[in-house]
């Protein structure tokens, strides 16, 4: 029997894979893809609880999360292009103009 606990553990594992990607990779495009993985983990949680509680509000909020993810991807990739045009690189370690 598959309970919401299974879905929550799957979601936690996917979330952690995304966090590891954000913390260990240097390619900023990969980091953005890891953020998409994290948002997907959140969505899995929302939909699992939506099914468990027989309440569709979770699915509505999952749609909002997808909309925010789309906006984030558009703006983030615009930033990547602007950065690449200035420095000819997508290495996150070279993004240190505002470093303290």
């Amino acid at each position: 029997m598959i309970t919401p606990t299974h879905y929550m553990l799957l979601s936690a594992a996917l979330f952690i894979i995304g966090v590891v990607g954000v913390m260990t990779r240097r390619n900023i495009i990969i980091i953005f893809m890891s953020i998409e993985l994290i948002l997907n983990a959140v969505n899995i949680n929302l939909v699992a609880f939506s099914m468990q509680l027989h309440n569709l509000v979770g699915q509505v909020f999952a749609i909002f999360v997808i909309a925010v993810a789309a906006a984030e991807a558009a703006v983030g990739l615009g930033i990547i292009l602007a950065f690449y045009r200035n420095k000819e690189s997508v290495n996150i370690d070279e993004m240190n103009l505002m470093r303290w």
């Binding site: 900023i28 495009i29 789309a70 990739l77 990547i80 292009l81 690189s89």
Partner: peptide, 21 residues
């Protein structure tokens, strides 16, 4: 369909002579 195409566009536009890693 949408977001991944955006990523592919950026990966193709960004010509990496030296990989970041």
């Amino acid at each position: 369909g949408g977001i991944v195409v955006l990523y592919l566009f950026v990966v193709m536009l960004v010509n990496l002579k030296r990989p970041p890693e």
